[in-house]
């Protein structure tokens, strides 16, 4: 079926099998392999992208459901010669090893910082009436949908914390 996706600001007209997930549309049909497939089941976060600014698992949604949506993938966040501050922080804090979970971590963290800025509480928030602050616990809790078997977690938390601190 015909689907129009806006990805990183560019419109793509696609003719897709209706069973095609958003993740497979990116990886198999658009050559955007930055979004990773770790489970295809919404269990690992490797496929995280942003749809209209909110992070989602792109393996858990069909491409045809996103006609007209604004999708941002890791490729839209930065390029090797033009890294986002968060991408740069992941490098300097060694927030990855094999790198397979990394695009998902970065997409997730990018959206997560917005959620905090908007005042969304989490399980780790002391008082949900207060604005959440960027404690280690808050970051770890909010990033727990993104698995990393290399276990760069402490470094991921540091990368996010430093980036947020520097932009504050």
């Amino acid at each position: 079926m015909k689907t129009e996706l806006t990805i990183n600001g560019t419109q793509h007209k696609l003719e897709l099998d209706p069973r095609t997930t958003l993740l497979d549309a990116l990886r198999h049909h658009l050559g955007l392999t930055g979004s990773k497939k770790g489970c295809d089941h919404g269990q690992c976060g490797a496929c995280t992208v942003m749809v209209n600014g909110r992070r989602i698992n792109s393996c858990l949604t069909l491409a045809c459901m996103h006609d007209g949506d604004e999708i941002t993938t890791i490729e839209g966040i930065g390029q090797p010669d033009n890294l986002s501050p968060l991408q740069q922080a992941f490098i300097s804090q060694d927030g990855f090893q094999c790198g397979y979970c990394t695009p998902g971590q970065i997409c997730s963290a990018t959206a997560m910082l917005e959620e905090i800025a908007e005042g969304w509480p989490s399980h780790a928030t002391e008082d949900i009436n207060d604005r959440p602050s960027l404690t280690v616990d808050e970051i770890a809790e909010r990033m727990s949908g993104n698995l990393c078997r290399c276990a760069a977690y402490p470094n991921i938390v540091e990368a996010i914390r430093k980036t947020a601190e520097e932009s504050a």
């Binding site: 990886r27 050559g31 955007l32 392999t33 930055g34 979004s35 990773k36 497939k37 993938t73 890791i74 490729e75 966040i77 930065g78 390029q79 090797p80 010669d81 890294l83 991408q87 740069q88 992941f90 490098i91 300097s92 060694d94 990855f96 790198g99 397979y100 990394t102 695009p103 970065i106």
Partner: peptide
């Protein structure tokens, strides 16, 4: 820092099932 870091954090490092 890892020299391949910029490729990994931007999704440009090519893993097995990503070759076109």
């Amino acid at each position: 820092d890892r020299p391949e870091g910029p490729l990994k954090v931007t999704g440009q490092a090519t893993y097995a099932n990503e070759w076109q």
